[in-house]
Design a protein around this nucleic acid. Structure first.
Lengths: 113, 113
DNA sequence: TTCCTCCGTTGAAACATTTAAACCTTTTGA
DNA sequence: TCAAAAGGTTTAAATGTTTCAACGGAGGAA
């Protein structure tokens, strides 16, 4: 792959992963995501997450909204109960590829010194 | 690898990559990084970056500081001239592995439904 | 219906980030 | 030595983010 094509892939990758980079750059949202991964496909409710983290209910709700907008979590509603779970998201794959290209490009830069 | 070990790896990965997730979650810093990758090992100066982005010089300087603190860029000084370049950073590798584990875990969750 | 539970939303306050103008430091070269 | 050039730093304003308290709405149970 040409250097120019690599750079374009990185640019595209950045655009496509910006939401999840932003969402995952926050410690509270990382904690919530780990809790949700532990819970598995059944998901967790806001009240449970409030108990596990040191956050208030509205704060948990706020962070879940951001994770939801980044399409990292999904909701399943059962009556008044809302179960949140981690959602498959192709951005994780793009993130891996983008990081790999950057890694390779930086190494190539170093060698061509 | 056990599920428990996977979760621990994700937690550790999050802690180790938080700085770069935060740094890369910003559009301006993404632009700067791409410009620096284009420039290669020679690096670029603040003035050149100011011309390429739509940012002011202090703003570029500010974002470079954040990228520097995340150990994504390095400086080489030649007189009063400061050349910034992208630096090899093992966090990219950790980011890839963490994303891969999350991907796999989410898929496993879906299947065990 | 009436009460209760579970959550989302709104509004305001606290806090953090981003930006630009003005200033300061260091180096270069006349 | 003096002026110019390069770029970092400080300050203050604007903006964005995060948080909590209070409210509201929807569903379930009696």
């Amino acid at each position: 792959m040409s250097r120019q094509a690599d750079l374009q892939k990185i640019k595209d990758g950045f655009v496509q992963t910006q939401d999840i980079l932003l969402a995952l750059g926050d410690e509270n949202r990382q904690s919530i995501l780990v809790s949700l991964l532990e819970a598995g496909c059944d998901g967790m409710r806001v009240g449970q997450l409030t108990a596990q983290t040191h956050l208030s209910r509205p704060a948990v709700s706020h962070h879940l909204k951001i994770l939801k907008e980044a399409q990292l979590v999904s909701i399943r509603k059962d009556g008044t109960k809302h179960y949140y779970a981690v959602q498959p998201n192709e951005s994780f794959g793009i993130m891996q590829k983008t990081a790999a290209i950057i890694e390779r490009l930086v190494e190539e830069n170093e060698q061509n010194d």
